[in-house]
């Protein structure tokens, strides 16, 4: 009897371990335990749980644990681009390479994923001058919530995901406009 119970516990632990070791399990806190919603609020029965919506979208580490760029590119979501019919929806495909003289891998700034989500006016000219090399960028400022850190670290994938930005190895001479 006792040994059967022990074997069962051991088996459960092994299953849990196998699941955790796979490291692809994404978990989203239920609204009632997320620390911002009032567990007593009558809305909790009506609001959507993050897990319900986000588990269906392409996975990535950090932030909402969703690759929001791929979610659009793969057609999983198609969020509205505008509300007023007269708004011009602008898309730009060019990449800019940043941080050419540093020691970490080169940063590729891609306009396409940004302009899928944002308008030029969200960045130009108050955050970044629209001329390659015209901006003095620093990782330090970003960590303080400036420059790229206005969005990355708040809403877009967080600054802990170094290699999504530092994505071009230094050994290879890379393509694109340099600063």
């Amino acid at each position: 009897m006792l040994s059967r119970a022990l074997r069962l516990i051991a088996m459960l632990l092994l299953i849990a371990d196998a699941v955790l070791a796979a490291e692809v399990v994404r978990r989203w806190a239920p609204l009632a335990q997320d620390g911002v919603h009032d567990p007593k609020s009558p809305a909790l029965k009506l609001l959507q749980e993050p897990r319900e919506a986000l588990s269906a979208l392409p996975p990535v580490a950090g932030g909402n644990q969703v690759d929001w760029v791929q979610a659009i590119e793969q057609g999983r979501i198609n969020p509205r681009t505008n509300i007023f019919p007269e708004t011009r929806v602008r898309l730009l495909e060019s990449d800019v390479l940043l941080n050419l003289r540093g020691s970490t891998p080169i940063v590729r700034f891609p306009h396409r994923p940004h302009t899928l989500w944002l308008d030029c006016g969200n960045c130009h000219e108050h955050l970044f001058k629209s001329r390659a090399g015209a901006n003095k960028l620093s990782m330090d400022a970003m960590l303080q919530g400036e420059q790229c850190g206005v969005c990355h670290g708040a809403v877009s994938f967080p600054l802990t995901e170094c290699n999504r930005c530092h994505s071009v190895p230094r050994a290879k001479p890379a393509q694109g406009k340099a600063r």
Binding site: P50, A53, V66, P79, R80, N82, W117, L118
Partner: peptide
């Protein structure tokens, strides 16, 4: 009660530019 606004919920339906530009 305080207001909670969720980006994850709204960005499935609207791009950033709708709220932060338009």
């Amino acid at each position: 009660r305080p207001v909670v606004f969720s980006h994850w919920f709204h960005r499935i339906r609207f791009r950033c530019k709708v709220c932060h530009f338009e």
